[in-house]
Design a protein around this nucleic acid. Structure first.
Lengths: 142, 142
DNA sequence: ATATTTAGTAAATTATCGTTTACTAAATAT
DNA sequence: ATATTTAGTAAACGATAATTTACTAAATAT
């Protein structure tokens, strides 16, 4: 295995705990419902049902039901796709967005607390290195 | 919000897609069962039932049942905790480990493919930056 | 010694997940 | 024009997930 791939996989592994926190269900949502909201939040544009069901590897038949539940609870909106009358686009409501942001707040808090274990110079190094990784990972996506 | 925290959160977000892939169920395992194996794999030491159930935010009563199912299918072992006779420690079997490694292989392949979008120098930059991030994140955990 | 906490189990019940088959209507291909 | 594909819905059924109450036995506290 390439050295660079090892670093990549170790990076995911190192961030695993924060990831885990993302996955935790909030109050009255099931794991899957939460994953759907999370997926919508991360892909911060509107998505069709198909895109969601493929992204999460859940059959569209099931996704229909799951989304209906989220809609009834006020987490998402559903409107016709302007470009394709057969399909619908799903968006987070304010309630939906808030439910996700709360998780980020916890991750943020945790990170800030742990930061104190680095000295000033190391913090700047970390910031710069993360910036570089972010820049290059994005470039790889295009 | 601190700039460094922004970079951190963006980093998680950038790695999210790969992580999603981890979460996809393999063959005959449910989402939750898969998450349990993943959790064991990432925390590559032996864990007690309590640790798993707290880490995944699943009640211990449910965890008992879930683990029994994984045990019956040969993914985990369960043995008495030497330090506390009330508790048991859970470990992945070879089958359990393999099931997780297969997912990593896919993530690895994807990454290697996308790498071609960077030139030689950028690849080295990325490798070095990730190395630095990994080093400092680990230091923060202690 | 006794009381309280802690780790895990058991069983029952409801809700959700996961899959399959079948359907409608719009989009696309021939 | 007609046939085929595509996006989404509906309903039904078995398998899990999630929650609650109650229990055992070891560990810890008083």
């Amino acid at each position: 295995m390439l050295q660079i791939s090892k670093e990549y996989i170790e990076l995911i592994s190192n961030l695993f705990k924060s990831f885990q926190r993302l996955n935790q269900k909030s109050s009255n949502l099931t794991h899957l419902q939460n994953q759907i909201l999370e997926f919508l939040f991360m892909n911060h544009n509107t998505l069709t049902i198909k895109q969601i069901s493929e992204g999460l590897n859940v059959p569209k038949q099931q996704m229909t039901v799951l989304l209906k539940r989220l809609f009834d609870q006020g987490y998402i909106t559903k409107s016709q796709n302007k470009h394709d009358k057969r399909s619908f686009v799903i968006e987070l409501t304010e309630k939906g967005k808030t439910s996700q942001q709360e998780k980020w707040a916890k991750i943020y808090q945790n990170f800030v607390n742990d930061l104190s274990k680095l000295d000033r110079e190391e913090q700047l190094d970390l910031q710069y290195a993360m910036h570089k990784v972010n820049y290059l990972l994005k470039k790889m996506e295009d």
